[in-house]
Amino acid sequence: MSEDGSRRADMVWGFLSLWDLWDCETLQNKLPSNFDWTQPIGNDGLVPLTVLLLDPARMSNNKSGFLKLAEWMLKSGADPEQRLPAENTFFRSWFQKDKPDATRITVSFGGHSAITLAVAWLHAMQEAKGGANWGNETGCLREFLTLCASTVATRAARDPPTVPMRQSVVEVWESVRNMTATHNVIFETADGQVTAHDVVLLAASPVLKAMLESSMKEGSSKRISVEDSSSSGVSLFLDMLYTGSTWDDPDYKTMLVALDLAHRWQVTGVVDMVSDALPQMLAVDSFADIAEAAVLKGLDALQRACRGFGSKSEEIQAMLQAGSFPDHVQRLLGASATHACEPGASKGRRRSF
């Protein structure tokens, strides 16, 4: 994590764990919009959303502040389903001041997400140990869970789950993909020609549909120039378009070409498949190119993966301090923009990589 990122994480920890009153606007004004709400803060390795659940008195005494902070954090990228490592040994005890020993309840945080942690507290409270009345606290926790559930539902609607596809369906479309004698569209790439069926392209991409049905040369000749793209990248794009899979083992540069084409031609399914696979390819050599693509194409999940990788890599942090990345990558990692140097940049079928 960069020095700026570490300082901001420490500030968030101090704000959430030590202040008597929570003021959402104060924290908003002190943090950049790209602060990573999934990173651990403090010495105990907790993520910010779980830190909100440390103190029942503060939570119930400032219910509006608690819920406003939770809502803002969720909207800013906090993940209510993100689990702490199972080996995390942090635990917390809650009790009522008039009968501390009789009413004490304890929950270990290891392995919990913010959602399951809130549920664990609710279960412990429902026992009413020592005759405790946790009515205010349970009310806060239930509203917190409502916010979390709404966030999960919204994200699920935006990113619907992958539907399994039978191998027989894949094989049919693979056969169609390989019927090169019936291909009637030619992509002219930087290093050769790649072909496809116009009917598939028309159905998949509004951009390609407009090009192929126009009176311009693409429509009349069925030739599309992509001389800024490699043939391997175009082929990967078409593999994913036809079958959602590939026999090849593409490197990250080929993946980025396919991502760029899918984004350019508005084929969201291929954008999703490729961007979901790219976090597995993050390395020191590939980081700058993948992070730049994530920022320029507005791919939030890939941006979060890049921030997480960058915060843990000493080599990336050294490059960040040296201003070696483009300005938007510097900002993604929480550093000020600089005059950055541009970065130089046995097989089986791989299903969604």
Score class of each variant (00 low, 15 high):
residue 1 M to Q: 08
residue 9 A to K: 08
residue 10 D to Q: 14
residue 12 V to A: 12
residue 15 F to K: 13
residue 20 D to V: 09
residue 21 L to V: 13
residue 24 C to Q: 12
residue 24 C to I: 05
residue 25 E to G: 04
residue 30 K to I: 04
residue 35 F to K: 09
residue 39 Q to A: 12
residue 40 P to D: 07
residue 42 G to A: 08
residue 50 T to Q: 13
residue 54 L to R: 14
residue 61 N to F: 00
residue 62 N to K: 01
residue 65 G to N: 07
residue 65 G to K: 01
residue 75 K to L: 14
residue 81 E to A: 14
residue 84 L to M: 13
residue 89 T to V: 13
residue 96 Q to L: 13
residue 99 K to T: 04
residue 99 K to P: 01
residue 101 D to T: 09
residue 104 R to W: 00
residue 110 G to W: 03
residue 115 I to N: 08
residue 119 V to P: 00
residue 129 K to S: 07
residue 132 A to V: 05
residue 144 F to C: 09
residue 151 T to L: 09
residue 153 A to F: 09
residue 159 D to Y: 14
residue 160 P to T: 13
residue 163 V to N: 12
residue 204 A to N: 08
residue 206 P to D: 07
residue 206 P to V: 04
residue 208 L to V: 09
residue 214 S to N: 06
residue 229 S to P: 02
residue 230 S to C: 11
residue 231 S to P: 08
residue 231 S to F: 09
residue 245 S to E: 06
residue 251 D to Y: 07
residue 253 K to V: 01
residue 260 D to I: 00
residue 262 A to G: 07
residue 266 Q to L: 15
residue 270 V to L: 01
residue 271 V to K: 10
residue 274 V to D: 03
residue 276 D to Q: 15
residue 276 D to I: 03
residue 284 V to S: 02
residue 286 S to N: 03
residue 299 L to V: 11
residue 305 A to R: 06
residue 307 R to F: 08
residue 311 S to W: 05
residue 318 A to I: 11
residue 320 L to D: 00
residue 320 L to H: 04
residue 324 S to L: 12
residue 326 P to T: 05
residue 346 S to C: 13
residue 346 S to D: 14
residue 351 R to L: 15
residue 353 F to N: 01
